[in-house]
Amino acid sequence: MSDRLNINKTYKLYIGGKFPRTESGRAYTIEDSKGNTLCHMSRASRKDFREAIVACQSAIKGWANRTAFNRSQILYRIAEMLEGRKAQFVDELISTGATKGSATKEVELSIDRLVYFAGWADKYTQVFGSVNPVATSHFNFSTPESMGLIAIMAPDEHPLLGLVSNLAPCIVGGNTCVILASEVNPFIAISFAEVLNSSDVPGGVVNILTGFKSELYKHFGTHMNVNAIICCADNKDQIINMQENAALNVKRFILRNKVNWMSDAGQDPYFIMDTQEIKTAWHPIGI
């Protein structure tokens, strides 16, 4: 036994490419299956959510204007970084009660899923876009374009894979996002933020908060800057409230609380299309 003191990580939030503490100064405790304290997490407040939205908003233009090829490279880079830290994530998942087998599978699937969506970056516009026959002398195109700012409520189960499977299709399409991490095992999301931070993902494109869904769901619905909500949570009242408030600025509401993230159903090009808008352009011919 070494008499050295452990240096434990302080888990903070991830906003605008930085790791700030919650402005509220609050924390909550995460325990393992035996009731031992695993770590303390920042309990994000309404104001942290607002700060994240501000960071997210300022990143939209730069991110949407990146070439598809560049976004693809960056997603692939995240996968590379995660591959290099596989062992750490397996250990972290085991500490939450997963078996070694399922933990390894979850990390590997997460990496593969990032590569999968990286591959879609320069293809989805071709697959889902169209050239439309029209009666006048025009070329008529319909192409998917990013919606803007997406608020994601990540699933509680599979804290890494669930996060990655929702985040990747969102940002590969040029959106930026604010994510409320798994409430049960949030610290893995913050470790993943370190991966994002070293993967050339511009600050503000992905912002990760930890805290209580019950405290933050209202602001998901009411914040006028949010263009779509991806909800992986189960609470009916919260879902209804978010859907109702979404009407304020006609947010899109996407419910993904029945997806089995460990299966093939967890990777789907239609996940990209969930946060895309089809825009049509008329271009005159022969002038």
Binding site: R50, I53, Q57, H219, T222, H223, M224, N225, L248, N249
Partner: peptide, 9 residues
Amino acid sequence: TGNYQAPEY
């Protein structure tokens, strides 16, 4: 209104 606003409005 009680709701955070966005510049586009």
